[in-house]
Write a protein that binds this DNA or RNA. Structure first.
Lengths: 338, 338
DNA sequence: ATGAAAGCGCTAACAT
DNA sequence: ATGTTAGCGCTTTCAT
């Protein structure tokens, strides 16, 4: 049996399709009496508007896509959990894409591909793309970039102040008396800008405290996963002069690092203090609980969605802006011990 | 500037729209020479097919929706991570919806709402819906249900054999010499069928070993989160006769339970052994690592997608089936100690 | 406030 | 193998 269409409703109600459309969308004014007739017909026929047809007619899909490198990384999962309701509240469905941090995949998404028609705008947290790649995107695609990149002025960017946050984290380690502090997660290459900002904060905190930076204590990792943290920590502990504290560039890294330290019989934080970044739920339940930098994920989500809507609506080109969400230092057992 | 359409391409190539469509979709046979002409025109104009128009014309959206209660629950995140590539491989985009386990929200999704047009089929992991609710769904919606429910015969169901898996988990605890075993996560009410299957396995293992079940050691929880595990464990440890092992209905529950035990100075597994369920990544890095039941998530994803495609394609009604994915017992430190 | 009618860009049945 | 053409179901301009 065929789906009932707007035309069927119009016929039954004895009005034109135009009027039914008006009623359904609440557009123009409709007399109470005709509205009642139409609504009765809708109910009787069990009519539901065909979104596909509407999309074609309006040229909009009512969907936005959120692109993250990994869905099963808690930070991104939690961020999505915040973005979805924010988008839905303003009438948008959320499509989700994971890229595995693959540059080519990310590039295809922001390029002028056929999938473009599926979404009205995109929020992307790029990993493999360089600044340059980002500038090569489909110029008509409303775009908001998440994470630690500086915009080239043609798109918007939402993030926390990573340098400030990292400085706070390391200053906290200094404040509890640590002097040989390591950093795990640096990525000294073009696509590692996010990591580099944290390294900058690491240096800034040392400088502010008048402490020298031991460059050999800055450990690079390919990703921000537990395994990276575990491996890096092992390398640090193998040294003749291991650090007494570690600033990890994500909570997952911290989790892996702690795993290694405990496995070697060390006490955290007594022997080695650890602080992470992201404030994922795990960190509140692990043993010990993980001190961290907590980005305001709801604020990030809201800022990103609001800004994207603005871009979708705006016809004239809008200059790109940097939007900063708040963050907070949350000391827990892995630095305080209690 | 207007997007170039299929018609523009046809004109430039000097062929009919029909032929361009054939080339784009690889449908019928096209002469090599005309194909070349068309492809040249496509390249020259930078043509990309309008998916919205195609959707309307075909009546299919090329999207499936996956509905989970919580996106930031690692188990679901990992499952999605498996489903998305499986669906993409067969040409489907994946929409994601989180329901917060809300019965009404879940009900709207499987009902005959307007969003129906946005997806060709649905994979849902219900939490709040009763068997009865599921039967009230839009009969035209191709549906695959994940998790521990028995189908009413009108839809498909993919899961592991929970009773068997739970039996294995508890038998493992018995095998390592534990005799007072608790269970955390029971939900003795209509929507708690998933939990009840695990409780059934808990009993079966006792019976197989000739051990009595201490009913007071079966602790109910509203959800399967860390906080639930932490709270339940506290209650167990407050008893005059605490258990020497705990079967937790999820790894998150186990994580919370271990957190409480360690916090009270107990050793895991020496003083109390803990086994979880789901095999989420956390469990492989926590301290101690968590013994668990590992459902084959890739198999679940593949089975679900394959079956959904079958339903989408099939015009005649197909009887609902029960599909079982493999699972595996993975002993780790929280029961073995090493 | 409502009606008539022309698209939106593609697919696919029908024709050659 | 390719062309012609009638929709898919809705929105929306132009009338009235």
């Amino acid at each position: 049996m065929r789906e009932t269409t707007l035309r069927d409703v119009a016929e039954l109600a004895g009005v034109s399709p135009r009027t039914v459309s008006n009623v359904v969308n609440g557009y123009a004014k409709v007399t109470d009496s005709t509205r009642a007739k139409v609504e009765a017909a809708i109910a009787e026929l069990g009519y539901r508007p065909n979104v596909l047809a509407r999309n074609l007619a309006t040229g909009r899909s009512g969907q936005i896509v959120v692109v993250v490198p990994y869905l099963d990384t808690p930070y991104f999962a939690e961020l999505l959990q915040a973005i979805i309701p924010a988008a839905r509240k303003v009438g948008y469905n959320v499509l989700i894409d994971q890229t595995d941090g693959d540059r080519q995949h990310e590039g295809e998404l922001i390029g002028r591909g056929s999938r473009r028609f599926l979404f009205d705008g995109m929020i992307i947290s790029p990993l493999g793309l360089s600044q340059n790649d980002l500038s090569q995107r489909d110029p008509d695609l409303p775009l908001v970039v998440l994470g630690e990149r500086v915009s080239d002025g043609t798109f918007d960017h939402v993030g926390i102040d990573d340098v400030a946050a990292s400085t706070e984290a390391v200053s906290h380690l200094i404040a509890i008396g640590r002097r040989r502090i390591a950093a795990i997660g640096d990525q000294p290459y073009p696509t590692g800008e996010a990591a580099q900002l944290r390294t900058r904060g690491f240096r800034a905190a040392h400088e502010a405290a008048g402490l020298p930076v031991d460059e050999s204590l800055i450990i690079g990792t390919a990703r921000f996963n537990r395994i990276d943290g575990a491996t890096a920590m092992a390398a640090l502990l193998d040294r003749a002069d291991p650090p007494d504290a570690v600033f990890c560039y994500s909570d997952l890294v911290a989790s892996g690092a702690i795993h290694t330290a405990l496995g070697r019989g060390l006490r955290v934080p007594e022997d080695i203090a650890v602080i992470g970044y992201d404030d994922i739920e795990d960190g509140r339940y692990s043993q010990p609980t993980i001190s961290t930098i907590s980005p305001d994920k709801k604020a990030i989500a809201q800022l990103a969605v609001d800004r994207l809507l603005l871009r979708i609506a705006g016809h004239a080109p809008i200059p790109g802006v940097e939007l900063r969400a708040p963050h907070e230092l949350i000391p827990r057992q892995s630095t305080l011990g209690y």
